[in-house]
Design a protein around this nucleic acid. Structure first.
Lengths: 193, 193
DNA sequence: GCCATCACTTGACGCCATGTCAAGTTGACG
DNA sequence: CGTCAACTTGACATGGCGTCAAGTGATGGC
């Protein structure tokens, strides 16, 4: 595609992202990536020291290309806490499919690779932070349930819209993406208020 | 499950379960298991054709030993749908820690091993079935929310008390087990009614 | 016009875990 | 005593990742 004569490093990143997105996340091998980028397997190692760092670089690249920051920050503009909660669930929930392949590969490596673990946890910390912000506004408006601390509410919200929950509902159970958003907005409102 | 006079087979299963329970699920190697069972690595292969089948046999063994069926069926006796929901969440939720190591190893293999995948999915299908039963009783009592179909409610409940959600809350966020049960009972009631 | 350097290729290798194979050893039982 | 089953021993194939050394070829500085 457009990556024919892009610098090699970028071509490798694009190929990595493409392979991870189109299924079988954790099965992608270094040689597959090299082949897709039309370079030798060793060329990949000239740019990235190992598989874990390549994947985390690809994750960063993906975030950049999609401008995730901007999209997730959109929910900030909501007037009330409840609106912000909805906006947040929609913003993050609709971003999940884009990073799912990536996440799957990274999560599969978490048990054995410290680098992959911290890369993924960094990203998830940002999402957790977004959940905390939504919960804080809810609390500010006096709409947060008595039965949960702010921390617990944050964790619960995070779990409700985690990549794994999304995977469960949309991949395994076949929910349409839009329905996932609706149900989770509603469930979050009910569970947190 | 013959194995009356095959102590070796049982020893291997017990060692497998023990290793999986005590941390680092997916890192357990065949040689680790052999060493723990005090047999040669090859002896393991005389009883189980490969890692996946050993793990699924260990999962079955674990279920047997803990008598999971009986424990999960206990929620059947609840009078109302709401009580059944609570009982179900408590029964299954309290069983999760016992099978967590096992589950982690099996889930890690799901991407690459069809056998492991189907073994785990079989077990999860039983849990999903339990969720469906609770939702049905809720619906029978007229307590199920209008905004969810029975299928959706079942899937949502299943996601709420999935092994991954438990892992998220109790392992990563450090919730006490009892609190996890409370919060999930409450959240399930709110989200489903 | 030449040569040095950089980016990449080629092909071989070590490592490690799974799984296979063949040739023992050991002990119970006829 | 021989046989059979259960187990051991050690070697080997396979398939990833990651490393290494010796090329090749285009570019740019001089």
């Amino acid at each position: 595609m457009s990556s024919e004569n892009a610098p090699t490093r970028i071509r490798i990143l694009k190929s990595t992202v493409a392979l991870l997105e189109s299924g079988e996340g954790s099965k992608v091998r270094m040689s597959d990536i090299a082949k897709a980028a039309k370079v030798s397997r060793q060329a990949v190692y000239l740019h990235f020291p190992n598989r874990a760092e390549l994947l985390t670089a690809a994750a960063r690249y993906l975030d950049e290309v999609n401008d995730i920051e901007a999209k997730l920050l959109a929910s900030r503009n909501a007037a009330t806490g409840l609106e912000r909660l909805d906006a947040w669930v929609a913003a993050w929930g609709n971003y999940i499919p884009k990073i799912y392949g990536m996440g799957k590969a990274l999560m599969a490596m978490m048990d054995t690779d410290e680098e992959a673990r911290s890369a993924w946890e960094d990203r998830m910390a940002a999402v957790h932070h977004g959940c905390a912000a939504a919960v804080r506004d809810l609390s500010r408006d006096g709409d947060l349930t008595q039965s949960l601390s702010e921390d617990e509410a944050t964790d619960l919200l995070f779990s409700l819209v985690s990549v794994r929950t999304w995977e469960q509902c949309c991949i395994e159970f076949g929910w349409p993406q839009a329905r996932f958003i609706e149900v989770m907005q509603q469930s979050a409102r009910k569970a947190l208020t």
